[in-house]
Amino acid sequence: MSALAEILFGGLFQGSLYAMMAVGLALVWTTIGVFNFSHGVFMMLGAYIAWQLVELGLPAAVAFPVAVVVMAGVGWILQASVVRPLIGRPNIVLVVVITTLAAGSLIENGALTIWGPRSKQIPALIAGNTTIGGVGVSLHQIAIIVITPLILAALWMFLNRTRLGLALRAVAQNEDASHLVGLNVTALYGLAFAIAASLAGLAGIFMGGYRFMSPVMGSDPLLKALIVVVFGGISSISGPIFAAYLIGFFEAACSYYFGLYWTPALLFGVLILTLMVRPEGIFASRSRGLA
């Protein structure tokens, strides 16, 4: 019983974080058709900005939302500086891999210079612990498990029930046709990056509340998010969400039965198997588009 509870809980928790990260990657891929390798750095930066604001004396309830909004701005600026100028180049996918990696490295080292290498922690969303099904869990983790689906549902509602969301889905499918109905394609690209960066920043704040933060804290979640989007397929945002939770459960089960040491190897095994059997991802249709 306690084994099942532990795997279930661990899966839901990890899955939540991966989903927040993977959705942002998928959003940027589907709308702009590029892969954002500074996504992990967004996560780190969100956590550090939140930490700084709390350190300056702001209550967490103010600091966290402010950090998320600041991250939206960071995402927009990054898009305008290292992605937008390259749009229209024939080899844009590869070029943007390099520019976002470079920008990420710059930000990462900037954070190291500003905040130093010493590990930091930000306040938990809810302090305290409890026991469920014989497993000790923190209320912070439970809060994340509850909040994440709400945020993802809100994102889904935004994309599927609002005019602006419709415009974002349209750009994802056909750029020329989007120009011809009068959409502001450049602004929508910025918006996609801004949303992705805020979600990553929020994931960073979540993570900084239960684990020590460092300037490289985003690289492992980015790697996991990459596995998630390859596994689930990146042509929609619902695919990565389901895949994130599946990968979360898989990881929790692996680390329970085989130990933490073997878990990454097994995860990459899944990745390789997916690429061999169904390279477009298990939930994917073959086209690009948000739904």
């Binding site: 889905r169 349209a170 056909n174 046709a177 011809l180 086209s287």
Partner: peptide
């Protein structure tokens, strides 16, 4: 292109490559 659409000059491109995963209702709203 947005300003030109805004002025009322509307271009239907060749080959009806529209928004494949949007509904007709969505296209009309766009």
């Amino acid at each position: 292109a947005r300003a030109i659409v805004g002025a009322g000059l509307i271009h239907v491109p060749q080959g009806n490559r529209l928004f494949p995963d949007l509904s007709i209702a969505d296209c009309m709203a766009l």
